[in-house]
Design a protein around this nucleic acid. Structure first.
Length: 803
RNA sequence: GCUCGGGUGGUGGAAUGGUAUACACGAAAGACUUAAAAUCUUUUGCCUCACGGCUUGCGGGUUCGAGUCCCGCCCCGAGCACCA
């Protein structure tokens, strides 16, 4: 037998494909060519290279896109690099090299590995978020948001990671811990750029309904957005001015306005109490200490802290307010279970109808008043109207903290004048290039390392008629001094719109031509990790909707269909990690078994979306399968003539099944069908039956999306075709030929399986009723015909005789 | 606590309400070989010598027929979580 030299075969065909441009995607929509845009979440090119788990999604999109191309679609299947962000910067700090150089090196390594797997990306469309030609448009889009008031400067306390030394968005946290380094984050007041993503909360929520995404991912987004509809109601504060309170009303948010008559006290968060103090409220030292204590406790909470187990604590402010429903005076407490960043930071407490309020009331001996409630929307509306409140929606989603006090990110297209008033820079000034610095180290004071580069920070120019900054030489009499924004954008910026750039990657005038965008968008199929559900996928949807509202894109959702990838775990069931020393290196696998075996195995190992452990044994099994295919091909490559009936049936069945399964991302059963098909071919040969070259060709075509190199080798060098199999047309099947001539029907007696008998395909019920009488099973179980109560026949499947 | 998944052989898994365990891995036996590897052949859910019986986390239900549908539990995974 002839063992293939994988390395040689793979290199030879990869070279051939490149020379013959078979992976190019043109923008030709002239004829009736249907388009298909299939996209991978682009990787962050880390210094460690890929392990066998990383390419699983890329292989899947590769398989899918190859079938679609063979089916006549114009397919866009691009790849690029999400290369801004902390790891590259940390690597740069450690090794004292420019992150640009590290990124370039890592990209090269990643690309080599991806090419090793024979992936069909059109590298002419490659993008990189750190390329100034790319981030020019990230800056330009931010500028549009700035001009629309959607991006604004804020000075609120935000999440601060003391180890990464940067502010973070809620999406960057796991509980109270920095998602990247695991440090407990602090609240730190910091000047920030913030984006009003909450303006889009309702649309982000309701438009989920039109997306063809896995339900659990939609659910994650719904939870993250966390909409609740409730009422805002004002309670009048008794003697507000005597208490030196600025406001004479306390606004609360409740989803249970119907319980308003059961309110016996109120509770506010410690931060609201702090605000009162700042505005002149004379709190006792006891209260001040309590506030300090709560603040300290909040800071010290770690990721596994269970808020619901926290013992309720509070202190009476001595201030009272009036329940607008019944005019009663109720005390106001400061309580540790009131969140400062949700609702209004103040609640009406109804101990009889809320567990938390009940617990609190029990502890502090407050009245628990049972009332009759009608838990309906109508009642809530009625009560809200009665007390002059209003129905509002609240969200858990917070505005997007968009600035990082780090070096390796997109600079903002913003300058400030001497009075710290901000201006967008004019389009002429874009891109604002990230300058080289001596030192990439972040600082403790919340300033970016860029702040130290005086030459870069201080710029001279004027504000033009559009209210935008334009630079001038320093000595120009019209020039005045401005200061650049020194924060940089978060890593999520570039990935929020990168998929648009693949469509028109070299356009210098606009980030994407609107006509091309209309032809290619939306992304038909998006494949990537589920961990992005509440980060990238929310940001990108928001960003896209903004571009849609401004008229730059034609569709209001970017990703029509989303499919998540299941992780590949190590053979020991743990996550692959250097730490455990259980990483399987794809270079080794490809060297030993070939890229095709690895590709095919990763698609065969189980359902695509499920996490599964790597198994070198199973992988070797797939490799054997491919060897058998090659041997069979050599054996029958010259066979003319016709196929046996069974060969004809199994190839038609396989064409149908493999096509449908790839379409549905059920690669494991597609491959199992190819195995069934091969088994059947070998069986037929043993019986002395013929398999024609023509049939074999179809089989190899079905295999081609998976085993891209071997199938090309067989197609051209064994079967003698002289153009690429990947440019051939996907075979068609004949439904009639899939039918078997004879069917094995099962016999049930009173619902119990008793055996089978053979009948002609599509036999009529009467024929079956007659035939069954001759079977041994019938004779054994049916003693008298009069016993039969009923006969159920399911065509070509079974007969059930009830006695 | 809430939400979403999932529970099928020794293992990964397959199954429009219609013969559960396809396909593969592993294991066992055999052929070839001086031998091993590779390859090929056969067996392989459980109980039973067998006839036969049992089996899709547990308990009910609907149905001629349930892994699949309905109700109630248990367990595992993921996400959210004092969200008023």
């Amino acid at each position: 037998m002839s063992k293939l030299n994988y390395g040689e075969v793979e290199k030879r065909w990869q070279k051939y494909w490149q020379e013959n441009n078979i992976n190019k995607t043109d923008n030709d929509f002239g004829d009736s060519k249907k388009k298909f845009y299939i996209l991978d979440m682009f990787p962050y090119p880390s210094g460690e290279g890929l392990h066998v788990g990383h390419p699983k999604g890329y292989i899947a999109t590769d398989v899918y896109s190859r079938m679609k191309k063979m089916q006549g679609y114009n397919v866009l299947h691009p790849m690029g690099w999400d290369a801004f962000g902390l790891p590259a910067e940390q690597y740069a700090i450690k090794n004292k090299i420019n992150p640009n150089i590290a990124v370039e090196k890592n990209v090269k390594r990643y690309k080599e590995q991806l090419e090793m797997f024979g992936l069909n990306y059109d590298w002419d469309r490659e993008i990189n978020t750190t390329d100034p030609k790319f981030y020019k448009w990230t800056q330009w889009m931010f500028k549009q948001m700035y001009k629309d008031g959607l991006a604004y400067e804020s000075f609120e306390p935000i999440n601060w990671c003391p180890s990464c030394k940067t502010g973070l968005a809620n999406e960057d946290l796991d509980g109270n811990v920095c998602e990247r380094c695991g440090s407990i984050v602090e609240k730190k007041p910091l000047r920030q750029w913030t984006i009003r993503i909450t303006d889009y909360a309702d649309r982000l929520l309701s438009d989920l309904d039109k997306l063809d995404w896995e339900e659990h991912i939609k659910e994650l987004q719904r939870n993250w957005i966390g909409k609740s509809v409730g009422s805002e109601i004002d309670f009048e504060i008794v003697d507000a001015s005597k208490n030196n309170l600025k406001e004479n009303k306390l606004k609360i948010f409740t989803t249970r306005a119907d319980t308003l008559f059961g309110c016996t006290f109120m509770a506010i968060s410690f931060s609201l109490a702090k605000e009162w103090i700042q505005n002149g409220w004379q709190a006792s030292s006891e209260i001040k200490n309590f506030i300090e204590k709560l603040e300290k406790e909040e800071k010290e909470r770690t990721i596994d802290f269970d808020m619901s187990k926290l013992e309720k604590e509070g202190i009476d402010t001595g201030v009272k307010a009036i329940n607008p429903a019944n005019g009663e005076e109720v005390p106001i407490y400061i309580a540790n279970y009131i969140l400062s960043d949700y609702g209004t930071g103040a609640i009406m407490a109804v101990p009889a109808h809320d567990e938390r309020d009940y617990e609190f009331a029990k502890k502090y001996n407050l009245e628990i008043r049972e009332i009759e409630v009608q838990n309906t929307d109508e009642e809530r509306k009625r009560i809200t109207d009665l007390v002059g409140g209003k129905i509002v929606s609240k969200y858990k989603l917070k505005d997007w903290v968009f600035a990082r006090q780090r070096y390796w990110g997109e600079p903002f297209p913003i300058v400030f004048d001497e009075n710290r008033k901000s201006y967008a820079v004019s389009d002429k000034e874009l891109p604002v290039i990230l300058p080289n610095v001596e030192n990439y180290e972040p600082t403790d004071n919340g300033e970016s390392p860029l702040a130290n580069i005086k030459d870069w920070v201080e710029v001279y120019g004027f504000i033009n008629g559009d209210g935008e900054f334009e630079s001038l030489p320093k000595d120009n009499p019209k020039a005045t001094k401005f200061y650049r924004e020194t924060n940089t954008m978060p890593q999520w910026a570039g990935s929020s719109w990168y998929y648009l750039r693949y469509i028109d990657p070299k356009n210098e005038n606009i980030f994407v031509d609107k006509n091309l965008e209309k032809n290619w968008n939306p992304v038909d199929f998006y494949v990537g990790g589920a961990e992005h559900a509440t980060r990238h996928l929310i940001y990108a949807r928001f960003w896209h909707k903004f571009l849609f509202d401004k008229g730059y894109v034609n569709y209001d959702e970017p990703f029509n269909k989303l499919q998540t990838v299941g992780l590949i775990m190590a053979e020991d069931g743990k996550k692959m990690s250097k730490r455990y020393g259980n990483v399987v290196n794809p270079d080794d696998v490809v060297r030993e078994y070939g890229a095709d075996a690895m590709r095919t195995y990763e698609m065969f190992m189980g359902p695509f979306e499920k996490a599964i452990s790597w198994s070198t044994n199973s992988m070797a099994g797939v490799s054997r399968f491919l060897e058998r295919v090659y041997n069979l091909a050599e054996k029958v490559s010259k066979n003319p003539g016709t196929d046996s009936r069974e060969v004809e049936r199994v190839i038609n069945e396989s064409i149908k099944k493999v096509g449908e399964d790839i379409e549905n991302f059920k690669f494991n059963t597609a491959i199992s069908q190819l195995m069934i098909c091969l088994n059947s071919f070998e069986e037929e040969i043993k019986k002395g039956n013929n398999i024609s070259k023509n049939t074999l060709e179809k089989f190899i075509q079905l295999l081609a999306p998976f085993a891209v190199h071997i199938s090309e080798e067989i197609w051209q060098n064994v079967l003698g075709n002289n153009s690429s199999i990947h440019l051939s047309s996907w075979p068609l099947f004949d439904e009639e030929k899939i039918k078997k001539e004879e069917i094995e029907m099962s016999i049930q007696i009173s619902g119990k399986f008793r055996g089978t008998f053979i009948v002609k395909n599509d036999s009529s019920d009467d024929e079956i009723k007659n035939l069954i009488k001759n079977t041994n099973i019938y004779k054994k179980y049916i003693l008298k015909e009069e016993e039969i109560k009923k006969i159920i026949i399911v065509k070509n499947k079974l007969i059930n005789i009830l006695i």
